[in-house]
Structures are given as structure tokens and as C-alpha cells.
Design a protein around this nucleic acid. Structure first.
Lengths: 74, 74
DNA sequence: CTATCGATTATCATATATGATAACAATATG
DNA sequence: CATATTGTTATCATATATGATAATCGATAG
């Protein structure tokens, strides 16, 4: 699978978890102390996100980091 | 937990899996098409690694991406 | 001893992730 | 209608991850 697809899978996973918790992009961004535009960029898979931001997102969403990468084909 | 500790946990996890498969840092680096010095940097947790390189490493080690983040405290 | 192998560290240039701002669209709601 | 909410996209400056090279170290083999 192409690497860009991984970005998209992770971004969409973040979006699903966020929506499950009924949090808006803007609120999540505020928790992370980043701009909402950055959240849109991340969720749409247009960035090769770093572990630091993945970790912050996992913390804010209350899910383990590993959960955000589940279902990504080996 | 401090974010730098996450880098170290992930780096050490990569190292453990790599050693389990009896692959040298240099050989793994070669599979990833990166320099061995970069592998040392990653495994020692001195870099805020991106999902792209995490994915490449998971592929080369033959483990799911999520496995590389297992055991990281929420 | 020398040579080799695995790994570490420092350094540099370059690519790019990030933080930030602004403009915009779609939808709901007064 | 106006206005608020939610999300998207473009753009820019800055911080930093990466790719690369070289020097170094420890251990081990010859």
C-alpha cells in the first residue's frame, strides 16, 4: 500500500474516534494547542504526522496510541 | 509521561523487534534505504519519528504498525 | 597487533511538518 | 435575511525530521 494511503487511514481513524466522542475538530485542536486548520490537514491525510502529535491526539481522545494505527495492513 | 519518553519507548521497541529477528541496524537501514546513523538516532529515541518511517520500519520488520506502539501508557 | 562488524554521535544541507492566519463553503439557527 | 458553527484550503515563516558523511568506540576474529 502506498504510504500516502497510510496518512489517510490514520487521519480517518482519528476522525472516527473524535466523532465517536462528539468532539469538534476545533475543540480537539484547542486541547492540542494547535490550530483547527492543522487538524483538518491531519484528518484529511495531507501530512506525514509525527509521533509527538499522534501521541497528543491519542491522549486528548483518551485512546491508546496503538489504537490509532489499528487496521493498517502490514 | 513526557513526550520524549514516548520517542524512547518506540525506539527501544523497534530495537527489540529488530534484535528478535536477528537483523543488524545496518541491514534494517539498508532495507529502508536510509543511513545506519539514522537508525541509531531512531532507536535511541532522539527523533520525533514520522508515521512514514514508522510504517516503513514496521513493513521491514514484518510487524503491524500498531505493534510498535504497544505498551505506551495512555 | 590489525581488520571487521555493529553501533553511536556530531555535523551539515535539504525537505517537510508544524503553527499560524486568512479566506471560504456548507449547514444550521436566530 | 444575518450569524454562528464546523470544516476545508491556501499560504507563509519557522522548527525540525531526514538523508548523508565522517569520526569514533567496543567487541571480536584473524
Amino acid at each position: 500500500m502506498r504510504e500516502e494511503e497510510v496518512f489517510i487511514l490514520v487521519g480517518h481513524k482519528i476522525r472516527r474516534v473524535r466523532q465517536l466522542k462528539s468532539i469538534s475538530q476545533q475543540d480537539l485542536a484547542a486541547m492540542l494547542n494547535i490550530e483547527k486548520s492543522n487538524m483538518a490537514r491531519i484528518e484529511s491525510g495531507r501530512t506525514n504526522i509525527t509521533i509527538r502529535n499522534l501521541y497528543r491526539i491519542a491522549i486528548s481522545l483518551g485512546v491508546p496510541l496503538s489504537e490509532l494505527m489499528e487496521g493498517i495492513p502490514l
